[in-house]
């Protein structure tokens, strides 16, 4: 089970909330402070992409974010419900679609540039981006 699970309507204004929650849970899980900026950016990219996919496909279901704390690692899974056709199988070609594809690819480029351990899957029922960071055991610091 996820340590924290978040579902939000596929609207751009909620992506910031997802970033803040993810960064807070990552910090608690022991993700290095220096990496938290990357966590925030990567989860934001994944959520923005999911929101875009839901909006362009007219899907009313929420975007799902699972924050999973495990031994020595912390994972974030961002799931969308936008069905994908087989690669190259879909009819495309309009300028609008090209722009969306470009933005989608830029988001993925940022994620893969930031996160070493990332897994992107997609199928007819939707897609998922799973990103994992190592954690260090939290030491009790009382200041």
């Amino acid at each position: 089970m996820a340590t924290v699970e978040l579902r939000f309507s596929a609207l751009p204004e909620h992506v910031r909330t997802a970033r803040l929650v993810a960064a807070a849970v990552a910090r608690r899980a022991g993700v290095d402070e220096a990496v938290l900026d990357e966590v925030r950016l990567a989860v934001g990219e994944a959520c923005s992409r999911a929101v875009g996919l839901h909006q362009s496909a007219g899907i009313t279901a929420p975007v799902k974010v699972q924050l999973v704390e495990e031994e020595k690692q912390f994972s974030i899974e961002v799931g969308d419900e936008a069905p994908r056709s087989s690669p190259g199988g879909g009819a495309s070609g309009s300028a609008g679609e090209d722009v969306e594809t470009e933005e989608d690819e830029m988001g993925l480029a940022v994620i893969s540039g930031l996160v070493d351990d990332v897994e992107v899957t997609a199928g007819e029922h939707g897609g998922q981006i799973r990103m994992t960071w190592p954690t260090t055991p939290t030491t009790a610091v009382i200041s």
Partner: peptide, 9 residues
């Protein structure tokens, strides 16, 4: 404070 790929676009 924060910039993502949408901003880059």
């Amino acid at each position: 404070d924060f910039l993502d790929s949408t901003g880059l676009g």
